[in-house]
Write a protein that binds this DNA or RNA. Structure first.
Lengths: 186, 186
DNA sequence: GTCTATAGTAAGATAGAC
DNA sequence: GTCTATCTTACTATAGAC
C-alpha cells in the first residue's frame, strides 16, 4: 500500500500526541524509544523516520502541549477562566497527568534539556502569561497564578493521602480566586 | 585498614548527601548507579552495601533533603522568613539546583515512585506547611506560598532568557511578600 | 566496606528489506 | 514509512576477592 503525500505529517502529529501523553505520565528520561513507539502501536525503527533524536521529540511534545494549554486559557471572560482554573486544580487533573498540562509533569526535565527545547518552552510560557495578564491586568499577579497552579499540581501528585491533596488544592484555589477577582490588589 | 563501628552509618549519610546533590541537578531516572557512585568517589559495587535498590536511595534522599528545607524555614520571626523566601526565589537558587530545594527538582519523579517514598515526601511537605502556617496563621495562605515558591523555581529553570526569569521571580516575590505581610487577607 | 568482574537486560541509534 | 535485525553503550543488580 502507498502512503498519501501528507501521511508523514499526519503520522508525526499523531506520534507527538500519543507519545506526549505517555511521557507526561511516565517521565521523559524514564521511557525508552521502544516503549514510546509501542504505545503508539509502532516499532522503534520507525521513530527515526520522524525525529532525528529523542530530544527532538521532547521539543515537539513541549510545543504541541503548550499550544493546547494556551487554547484552554484563551477566553478573556472571567467566568471561563475560573472554570479553567477549577479544572486545573481538580483531583482529576492530579490523577491523570497523561491528559493534563505538560508543565508540572515535564518542567524539571525541560530545565535539564537543550537550549532549543527551552526556547520553545519559554515561548509557550510567555504566551500563557500574556493571556492571564490580560485577565488580571497585572504581570506580577499573572506570574503568581501560573506558579501556583503548576506548583500545586506537581506537589499534589506526590502526596499519597487524599486529605492532604484536598487541603492543598482547595487552599491554592482560594488564593488564586482572590487574585483573579480582586482587581484592587497589587 | 579496619572500619570504625559507625563508619557504615557515616558513609551512608555522606552518600545520601552527595548523591542527593547529583540527583537534584541531573534527575533521578536520568542517572545510573554508576554515575551516582562515581560522583561520590566510589564504584557501583559498593552501592548495594548501603541501599537495597535505587529506589530506596531516592527515599533516603527525599527524607534528608526535606529535613534541610524544614530547618531553613524554621524561624518563627517574619524577617527571617522574608530572607528565606528571597533566597528561595533568587537567581542563585535557580542556577544551582544541586545546592537547592529538592521539591522543584524531584517532585515529578516522586509522583511516579512508590508509596513509601511518597509517604516520606508527604511527611516533609506537611511539616513545611505547618511552619509556614505558623507565620501566616492561615492554612490556605501557607499552601499558596509553598506552591508559588516551588512552581516559580521549577518554571524559571526552564526559561533560557534572563529577562523572563527575572520577571517571573520578582513577580512571584511581590505576591508572596504580600501574603506574608498582610495578615488581613483570607 | 569497597573493589573488580560479570550477568542479564534495555537503552539510543542505524542498516537494509519490503 | 514501517518493519526486523543489529551495533554499541549503559543500565540495575549480584558474586566473590581483599
Amino acid at each position: 500500500m502507498r502512503y498519501s503525500p501528507d501521511h508523514k505529517q499526519g503520522a508525526r502529529a499523531r506520534l507527538v500526541d500519543t507519545t506526549g501523553a505517555h511521557v507526561k505520565k511516565n517521565g521523559f528520561a524514564a521511557t525508552g524509544v521502544d516503549g514510546l513507539m509501542a504505545a503508539a502501536g509502532l516499532t522503534s525503527g520507525a521513530f527515526y523516520s520522524h525525529f532525528r533524536s529523542k530530544s527532538e521529540l521532547l521539543e515537539a511534545i513541549i510545543g504541541n502541549e503548550l499550544q493546547r494549554s494556551i487554547a484552554l486559557f484563551s477566553s478573556p471572560v472571567l467566568e471561563d477562566s475560573l472554570l479553567a482554573v477549577e479544572g486545573y486544580l481538580s483531583q482529576a487533573h492530579v490523577d491523570h497527568p497523561e491528559a493534563g498540562c505538560a508543565v508540572p509533569a515535564l518542567a524539571a526535565e525541560i530545565a535539564r534539556s537543550g537550549l532549543s527545547t527551552q526556547q520553545v518552552f519559554e515561548d509557550g510560557m510567555l504566551g500563557l502569561k500574556d493571556q492571564i495578564q490580560n485577565l488580571v491586568q497585572d504581570e506580577s499577579k499573572a506570574w503568581s497564578i501560573m506558579a501556583q497552579l503548576v506548583g500545586a499540581v506537581m506537589i499534589a501528585r506526590g502526596l499519597p493521602s487524599e486529605s492532604a491533596r484536598a487541603a492543598l488544592l482547595t487552599g491554592v484555589m482560594q488564593q488564586v480566586k482572590r487574585l483573579l477577582q480582586d482587581t484592587s490588589l497589587t
